[in-house]
């Protein structure tokens, strides 16, 4: 009964908010809002999870899919071969496309063709969150950009708004395309958007993200995961000490996936 009432109040509040034009200001100030939220998290000693990818180490193990497989198996990501309808949380892309504004015609062939691990950037200022009309996608306090598949109406505005192509829409029922369903993690229904969640369900249990864990298990050590708000963390030190890249920096999304080439 308690939660029913709460739900009702939320609904009522939502309805009331419709009447207020006050929200108009907030999409202008969305970035500032996100900034201050991140700031609060920092001030409150909260965490700001991030991922660092050492592309060189990664590329050394040609054809390695350990992280991708681990992720997709853990999260029941369907394997749809048709490129138009495929669903992917983490995958590899050639550096030429990943870093369009950093790679140029004199960059070496190895560099240009180097497969780079890409995934949701869990931006500090995520456009997908900004555009979502139902708050089905939102930014959690400790960094990851989350999807609430229960609330998603499938409008795909976030897909349109994401500069990194990190979001996948379930064009059809994914269930037949999942070889082995892991009951521990619910698959999604057709008609909703999904993406990498930084394994927040694993983080809650003190585990590393599946991809990072798999990478370490393979011995590649190309992926580094940690809390950017912790000055002592390995990832913070790595990012501070070496030149790292973030994708499409000029868009101001402030991705939290760092690449070293």
């Amino acid at each position: 009964m308690e939660s029913g009432r709460r739900e009702f109040l939320k609904t009522a509040a939502g309805a009331a908010a419709l009447g207020l034009g006050a929200g108009a200001a907030s999409f202008v100030g969305a970035e500032a809002l996100a900034r201050s939220r991140a700031g609060q998290a920092a001030a409150g000693g909260g965490k700001r999870y991030a991922l660092a990818v050492d592309t060189k180490k990664c590329a050394e193990r040609e054809g390695c899919r350990a992280c991708i497989d681990a992720c997709h198996v853990t999260h029941n990501v369907p394997r749809i071969e048709n490129r138009e309808e495929e669903i992917k949380w983490v995958w590899k892309e050639e550096a030429e496309w990943v870093f369009q504004d950093r790679v140029h015609e004199y960059s070496g062939a190895e560099l240009r063709r180097r497969p780079v691990l890409v995934l949701c950037n869990h931006c500090d200022n995520p456009p997908c969150v900004r555009v979502c009309p139902t708050q089905a996608t939102f930014k959690s306090a400790d960094g990851p950009v989350m999807m609430d598949p229960h609330r998603c109406i499938g409008c795909r505005y976030c897909v349109v708004g994401c500069p990194y192509g990190a979001r996948s829409f379930n064009w059809k029922d994914p269930r037949p395309y999942i070889e082995h369903v892991d009951p521990a993690y619910p698959p999604r229904a057709r008609g909703v958007v999904e993406k990498c969640t930084m394994c927040s369900e694993r983080l809650a249990h003190g585990l590393l993200p599946a991809c990072v864990e798999a990478c370490a298990r393979e011995g590649a050590g190309a992926l580094l995961f940690g809390d950017m708000n912790d000055p002592e963390s390995e990832i913070r030190k790595r990012v501070e000490s070496s030149l790292s890249l973030r994708r499409k920096e000029h868009l101001g999304t402030r991705p939290q996936v760092y690449y070293t080439l």
Binding site: M1, S3, G4, R6, E7, F138, M146, H150, S200, A204
Partner: peptide, 15 residues
């Protein structure tokens, strides 16, 4: 159903 519904929101949205 209410319990499940509130669990759903608390887990997914509030962690």
């Amino acid at each position: 159903m209410e319990l499940l519904n509130s669990w759903r929101d608390e887990v997914v949205r509030e962690g």
